[in-house]
Design a protein around this nucleic acid. Structure first.
Lengths: 140, 140
DNA sequence: AAATTTTTGTTATATTATAACACTATACTC
DNA sequence: GAGTATAGTGTTATAATATAACAAAAATTT
Protein backbone atom coordinates (compact mmCIF):
# COMPACT_ATOMS: atom_id res chain seq x y z
CA UNK A 1 0.00 0.00 0.00
CA UNK A 2 1.46 3.28 -0.98
CA UNK A 3 1.37 6.46 1.01
CA UNK A 4 -1.50 8.04 -0.89
CA UNK A 5 -4.02 5.28 -0.29
CA UNK A 6 -3.71 5.58 3.48
CA UNK A 7 -7.07 6.46 4.89
CA UNK A 8 -7.77 9.96 5.96
CA UNK A 9 -8.16 11.07 9.54
CA UNK A 10 -11.47 12.23 10.99
CA UNK A 11 -10.91 15.95 10.46
CA UNK A 12 -9.40 15.42 7.04
CA UNK A 13 -12.52 13.48 5.98
CA UNK A 14 -14.85 16.15 7.30
CA UNK A 15 -13.01 18.93 5.50
CA UNK A 16 -12.62 17.03 2.24
CA UNK A 17 -16.27 16.04 2.31
CA UNK A 18 -17.35 19.65 2.63
CA UNK A 19 -15.06 20.85 -0.15
CA UNK A 20 -16.25 18.10 -2.48
CA UNK A 21 -19.87 19.04 -1.91
CA UNK A 22 -19.22 22.52 -3.26
CA UNK A 23 -19.02 23.33 -6.93
CA UNK A 24 -17.16 26.56 -6.24
CA UNK A 25 -13.96 26.87 -4.25
CA UNK A 26 -14.47 27.48 -0.58
CA UNK A 27 -12.62 29.64 1.90
CA UNK A 28 -11.01 28.31 5.05
CA UNK A 29 -13.28 30.21 7.44
CA UNK A 30 -16.33 29.20 5.46
CA UNK A 31 -15.25 25.59 5.88
CA UNK A 32 -14.79 26.23 9.57
CA UNK A 33 -18.24 27.67 10.14
CA UNK A 34 -19.83 24.88 8.13
CA UNK A 35 -18.16 22.02 9.97
CA UNK A 36 -18.43 23.32 13.51
CA UNK A 37 -21.40 21.05 14.12
CA UNK A 38 -19.10 18.14 13.32
CA UNK A 39 -16.72 19.04 16.12
CA UNK A 40 -14.13 21.16 14.39
CA UNK A 41 -13.78 24.24 16.52
CA UNK A 42 -10.79 26.30 15.52
CA UNK A 43 -8.84 27.49 12.47
CA UNK A 44 -5.75 25.33 13.02
CA UNK A 45 -7.86 22.21 12.72
CA UNK A 46 -9.09 23.35 9.32
CA UNK A 47 -5.72 24.54 8.06
CA UNK A 48 -4.01 21.32 9.11
CA UNK A 49 -6.54 19.25 7.22
CA UNK A 50 -6.19 21.54 4.21
CA UNK A 51 -2.41 21.20 4.23
CA UNK A 52 -2.62 17.44 4.25
CA UNK A 53 -5.29 17.28 1.55
CA UNK A 54 -3.21 19.53 -0.67
CA UNK A 55 -0.13 17.43 -0.01
CA UNK A 56 -1.86 14.26 -1.16
CA UNK A 57 -3.49 16.00 -4.11
CA UNK A 58 -7.13 15.65 -3.07
CA UNK A 59 -7.65 19.39 -3.17
CA UNK A 60 -5.90 22.38 -4.63
CA UNK A 61 -5.45 25.89 -3.40
CA UNK A 62 -6.62 28.65 -5.72
CA UNK A 63 -3.89 31.15 -5.00
CA UNK A 64 -5.56 34.25 -6.36
CA UNK A 65 -8.64 33.65 -4.23
CA UNK A 66 -7.24 32.13 -1.05
CA UNK A 67 -9.71 29.35 -1.61
CA UNK A 68 -9.73 25.59 -1.87
CA UNK A 69 -11.28 23.29 -4.42
CA UNK A 70 -11.51 19.53 -4.84
CA UNK A 71 -9.33 17.99 -7.50
CA UNK A 72 -11.46 16.92 -10.42
CA UNK A 73 -8.82 14.84 -12.12
CA UNK A 74 -9.31 11.20 -11.19
CA UNK A 75 -6.53 9.58 -9.22
CA UNK A 76 -4.65 12.81 -9.04
CA UNK A 77 -1.16 12.13 -7.85
CA UNK A 78 0.29 15.43 -8.92
CA UNK A 79 -0.25 18.03 -6.28
CA UNK A 80 1.31 21.34 -7.16
CA UNK A 81 0.72 20.93 -10.86
CA UNK A 82 -2.50 22.79 -11.42
CA UNK A 83 -4.24 24.70 -14.17
CA UNK A 84 -7.42 26.64 -13.52
CA UNK A 85 -9.70 28.92 -15.40
CA UNK A 86 -11.32 31.54 -13.23
CA UNK A 87 -14.25 33.74 -14.09
CA UNK A 88 -13.60 37.33 -13.06
CA UNK A 89 -17.30 37.90 -12.68
CA UNK A 90 -18.77 34.94 -10.77
CA UNK A 91 -15.43 33.61 -9.51
CA UNK A 92 -16.27 30.09 -10.53
CA UNK A 93 -13.19 27.97 -11.04
CA UNK A 94 -12.70 25.02 -13.38
CA UNK A 95 -9.73 22.75 -13.38
CA UNK A 96 -8.28 22.45 -16.86
CA UNK A 97 -7.25 19.05 -18.12
CA UNK A 98 -5.43 19.75 -21.35
CA UNK A 99 -2.74 17.27 -22.36
CA UNK A 100 -0.94 19.65 -24.69
CA UNK A 101 -0.73 22.35 -22.06
CA UNK A 102 0.39 19.80 -19.45
CA UNK A 103 3.18 18.79 -21.76
CA UNK A 104 4.25 22.38 -22.46
CA UNK A 105 4.49 23.07 -18.76
CA UNK A 106 6.09 19.77 -17.85
CA UNK A 107 8.81 20.26 -20.44
CA UNK A 108 9.51 23.86 -19.59
CA UNK A 109 13.05 24.70 -18.47
CA UNK A 110 14.28 28.13 -17.54
CA UNK A 111 17.48 29.65 -18.87
CA UNK A 112 19.55 27.83 -16.26
CA UNK A 113 17.95 24.52 -17.16
CA UNK A 114 16.18 24.30 -13.81
CA UNK A 115 13.68 21.48 -13.63
CA UNK A 116 10.62 22.52 -11.70
CA UNK A 117 8.74 20.32 -9.20
CA UNK A 118 5.48 22.04 -9.77
CA UNK A 119 3.55 24.91 -11.18
CA UNK A 120 0.31 26.75 -10.75
CA UNK A 121 -1.41 28.37 -13.69
CA UNK A 122 -4.53 30.48 -13.39
CA UNK A 123 -6.33 31.84 -16.43
CA UNK A 124 -8.70 34.77 -15.94
CA UNK A 125 -11.65 35.59 -18.14
CA UNK A 126 -15.41 35.71 -18.27
CA UNK A 127 -17.26 32.42 -18.33
CA UNK A 128 -19.91 31.68 -20.94
CA UNK A 129 -22.79 32.15 -18.56
CA UNK A 130 -21.56 35.52 -17.27
CA UNK A 131 -20.83 36.69 -20.81
CA UNK A 132 -24.40 35.85 -21.81
CA UNK A 133 -25.74 37.79 -18.86
CA UNK A 134 -23.69 40.82 -19.88
CA UNK A 135 -25.10 40.64 -23.41
CA UNK A 136 -28.61 40.36 -21.96
CA UNK A 137 -28.02 43.51 -19.93
CA UNK A 138 -26.87 45.61 -22.85
CA UNK A 139 -30.11 44.76 -24.68
CA UNK A 140 -32.30 46.63 -22.22
CA UNK B 1 -0.34 60.75 -24.28
CA UNK B 2 -1.85 57.45 -23.36
CA UNK B 3 -3.10 56.44 -19.96
CA UNK B 4 0.01 54.50 -18.98
CA UNK B 5 2.49 57.31 -19.46
CA UNK B 6 0.66 59.55 -17.00
CA UNK B 7 3.00 60.35 -14.20
CA UNK B 8 2.66 58.59 -10.93
CA UNK B 9 1.39 60.18 -7.77
CA UNK B 10 3.57 60.80 -4.74
CA UNK B 11 2.65 57.63 -2.86
CA UNK B 12 2.75 55.54 -6.01
CA UNK B 13 6.30 56.74 -6.68
CA UNK B 14 7.43 56.03 -3.16
CA UNK B 15 6.05 52.51 -3.22
CA UNK B 16 7.32 51.72 -6.71
CA UNK B 17 10.73 53.07 -5.84
CA UNK B 18 10.99 50.81 -2.82
CA UNK B 19 9.87 47.73 -4.76
CA UNK B 20 12.32 48.42 -7.56
CA UNK B 21 15.20 48.68 -5.10
CA UNK B 22 14.60 45.11 -3.97
CA UNK B 23 15.76 42.09 -5.88
CA UNK B 24 13.31 39.87 -4.06
CA UNK B 25 9.56 40.41 -3.90
CA UNK B 26 8.46 42.46 -0.92
CA UNK B 27 5.44 42.19 1.32
CA UNK B 28 2.93 44.97 1.80
CA UNK B 29 3.70 45.50 5.48
CA UNK B 30 7.40 45.46 4.79
CA UNK B 31 6.84 48.22 2.28
CA UNK B 32 4.83 50.10 4.87
CA UNK B 33 7.47 49.94 7.57
CA UNK B 34 10.16 50.95 5.11
CA UNK B 35 8.37 53.99 3.75
CA UNK B 36 6.96 55.40 6.97
CA UNK B 37 9.78 57.92 7.10
CA UNK B 38 8.50 59.20 3.75
CA UNK B 39 5.09 59.97 5.18
CA UNK B 40 3.10 56.87 4.37
CA UNK B 41 1.40 55.94 7.61
CA UNK B 42 -1.20 53.28 7.10
CA UNK B 43 -1.91 50.08 5.14
CA UNK B 44 -4.55 51.53 2.82
CA UNK B 45 -2.04 53.99 1.45
CA UNK B 46 0.26 51.14 0.51
CA UNK B 47 -2.45 48.88 -0.87
CA UNK B 48 -3.89 51.65 -2.99
CA UNK B 49 -0.53 52.38 -4.54
CA UNK B 50 0.01 48.66 -5.11
CA UNK B 51 -3.35 48.31 -6.85
CA UNK B 52 -2.55 51.13 -9.19
CA UNK B 53 0.97 49.93 -9.95
CA UNK B 54 -0.38 46.47 -10.75
CA UNK B 55 -3.07 47.96 -12.94
CA UNK B 56 -0.54 49.82 -15.05
CA UNK B 57 1.84 46.86 -15.15
CA UNK B 58 4.75 48.40 -13.23
CA UNK B 59 4.65 45.65 -10.63
CA UNK B 60 3.18 42.19 -10.31
CA UNK B 61 1.71 40.33 -7.40
CA UNK B 62 3.25 36.96 -6.62
CA UNK B 63 0.10 35.15 -5.62
CA UNK B 64 1.65 32.24 -3.79
CA UNK B 65 3.68 34.60 -1.59
CA UNK B 66 1.38 37.57 -1.10
CA UNK B 67 4.27 39.62 -2.30
CA UNK B 68 5.00 42.24 -4.91
CA UNK B 69 7.79 42.52 -7.42
CA UNK B 70 8.77 45.05 -10.06
CA UNK B 71 8.13 44.11 -13.65
CA UNK B 72 11.42 43.33 -15.37
CA UNK B 73 10.07 43.31 -18.88
CA UNK B 74 10.73 46.69 -20.43
CA UNK B 75 7.71 48.74 -21.36
CA UNK B 76 5.42 46.15 -19.92
CA UNK B 77 1.89 46.87 -20.99
CA UNK B 78 0.48 43.52 -20.11
CA UNK B 79 -0.55 43.41 -16.52
CA UNK B 80 -2.14 40.14 -15.54
CA UNK B 81 -0.03 38.11 -17.94
CA UNK B 82 2.77 36.89 -15.77
CA UNK B 83 5.15 33.97 -15.57
CA UNK B 84 7.44 33.47 -12.61
CA UNK B 85 9.89 30.91 -11.39
CA UNK B 86 10.06 30.67 -7.64
CA UNK B 87 12.70 28.96 -5.57
CA UNK B 88 11.12 26.86 -2.82
CA UNK B 89 14.21 27.30 -0.73
CA UNK B 90 15.23 30.98 -0.85
CA UNK B 91 11.93 32.23 -2.25
CA UNK B 92 13.65 34.30 -4.88
CA UNK B 93 11.42 35.04 -7.82
CA UNK B 94 12.40 35.61 -11.45
CA UNK B 95 10.09 36.78 -14.14
CA UNK B 96 10.25 34.51 -17.14
CA UNK B 97 10.37 36.01 -20.60
CA UNK B 98 9.90 33.08 -22.92
CA UNK B 99 8.29 33.81 -26.29
CA UNK B 100 7.22 30.24 -26.93
CA UNK B 101 5.54 29.94 -23.57
CA UNK B 102 3.89 33.35 -24.03
CA UNK B 103 2.46 32.13 -27.30
CA UNK B 104 1.21 28.87 -25.81
CA UNK B 105 -0.61 30.74 -23.09
CA UNK B 106 -1.90 33.49 -25.33
CA UNK B 107 -3.38 30.99 -27.75
CA UNK B 108 -4.94 28.79 -25.13
CA UNK B 109 -8.72 28.35 -25.29
CA UNK B 110 -10.74 26.23 -22.92
CA UNK B 111 -13.34 23.70 -24.07
CA UNK B 112 -15.96 26.43 -24.45
CA UNK B 113 -13.60 28.54 -26.53
CA UNK B 114 -13.33 31.19 -23.83
CA UNK B 115 -10.71 33.81 -24.56
CA UNK B 116 -8.89 34.82 -21.42
CA UNK B 117 -7.85 38.36 -20.51
CA UNK B 118 -4.97 37.26 -18.41
CA UNK B 119 -3.10 34.52 -16.65
CA UNK B 120 -0.66 33.96 -13.88
CA UNK B 121 1.82 31.11 -13.99
CA UNK B 122 4.16 30.26 -11.15
CA UNK B 123 6.78 27.55 -11.48
CA UNK B 124 8.26 26.08 -8.30
CA UNK B 125 11.67 24.52 -8.00
CA UNK B 126 15.10 24.95 -6.49
CA UNK B 127 17.31 27.64 -7.92
CA UNK B 128 20.86 26.90 -9.01
CA UNK B 129 22.43 28.58 -6.02
CA UNK B 130 20.27 26.73 -3.48
CA UNK B 131 20.87 23.43 -5.28
CA UNK B 132 24.61 23.98 -5.03
CA UNK B 133 24.32 24.69 -1.32
CA UNK B 134 22.41 21.45 -0.83
CA UNK B 135 25.12 19.50 -2.63
CA UNK B 136 27.76 21.23 -0.47
CA UNK B 137 25.91 20.15 2.66
CA UNK B 138 25.71 16.49 1.72
CA UNK B 139 29.49 16.41 1.30
CA UNK B 140 30.17 16.98 4.99
C1' DA C 1 -14.00 78.37 -12.52
C1' DA C 2 -17.09 74.58 -11.92
C1' DA C 3 -17.40 69.82 -12.13
C1' DT C 4 -15.33 65.39 -12.16
C1' DT C 5 -11.94 62.14 -11.03
C1' DT C 6 -8.08 60.72 -8.55
C1' DT C 7 -5.41 60.64 -4.65
C1' DT C 8 -4.71 61.33 0.18
C1' DG C 9 -5.02 60.65 5.22
C1' DT C 10 -7.23 58.35 8.91
C1' DT C 11 -9.59 55.08 12.09
C1' DA C 12 -11.38 50.92 12.65
C1' DT C 13 -12.09 46.30 11.44
C1' DA C 14 -12.35 42.14 8.48
C1' DT C 15 -10.01 38.20 6.68
C1' DT C 16 -6.50 34.79 6.36
C1' DA C 17 -3.07 32.04 8.66
C1' DT C 18 0.22 30.31 12.19
C1' DA C 19 2.78 29.59 16.85
C1' DA C 20 2.93 27.05 20.76
C1' DC C 21 1.69 23.61 23.98
C1' DA C 22 -0.40 19.52 26.07
C1' DC C 23 -2.48 15.43 24.81
C1' DT C 24 -4.27 11.13 22.07
C1' DA C 25 -4.34 7.80 18.43
C1' DT C 26 -2.13 5.19 15.01
C1' DA C 27 1.59 2.77 12.84
C1' DC C 28 6.25 0.68 13.10
C1' DT C 29 9.80 -2.34 14.84
C1' DC C 30 12.02 -5.57 17.54
C1' DG D 1 2.78 -6.95 22.47
C1' DA D 2 5.80 -3.31 24.76
C1' DG D 3 8.16 0.42 23.47
C1' DT D 4 8.87 4.11 20.39
C1' DA D 5 8.24 7.02 16.76
C1' DT D 6 4.96 9.59 13.82
C1' DA D 7 0.77 11.82 12.78
C1' DG D 8 -3.28 13.88 14.31
C1' DT D 9 -6.19 16.48 17.85
C1' DG D 10 -7.87 20.32 20.68
C1' DT D 11 -7.05 24.76 22.46
C1' DT D 12 -5.69 29.64 23.26
C1' DA D 13 -3.66 33.38 21.63
C1' DT D 14 -1.82 36.17 18.13
C1' DA D 15 0.41 37.28 13.66
C1' DA D 16 -0.05 38.66 8.95
C1' DT D 17 -2.70 40.27 5.16
C1' DA D 18 -6.28 43.26 3.39
C1' DT D 19 -10.41 46.31 3.09
C1' DA D 20 -14.50 49.51 4.46
C1' DA D 21 -15.84 53.90 5.15
C1' DC D 22 -15.48 58.72 5.45
C1' DA D 23 -13.73 63.45 4.99
C1' DA D 24 -10.54 66.36 2.65
C1' DA D 25 -7.14 67.89 -0.84
C1' DA D 26 -5.11 67.78 -5.41
C1' DA D 27 -5.14 67.13 -10.25
C1' DT D 28 -7.66 66.88 -14.57
C1' DT D 29 -11.38 67.80 -17.66
C1' DT D 30 -15.00 70.57 -19.66
Amino acid sequence: MDKKSKSLSKNQKIVLDFIQKNKKPVKAYSILSNVQKKGINAPPQVYRALDKLIEIGKIHRVESQNSFVACKISNCDTPHKTIFSICNSCEIVSEINDPKLFKNLKDFRDKDGTVFDGYNLEFFGTCKSCKNKQIENTKH
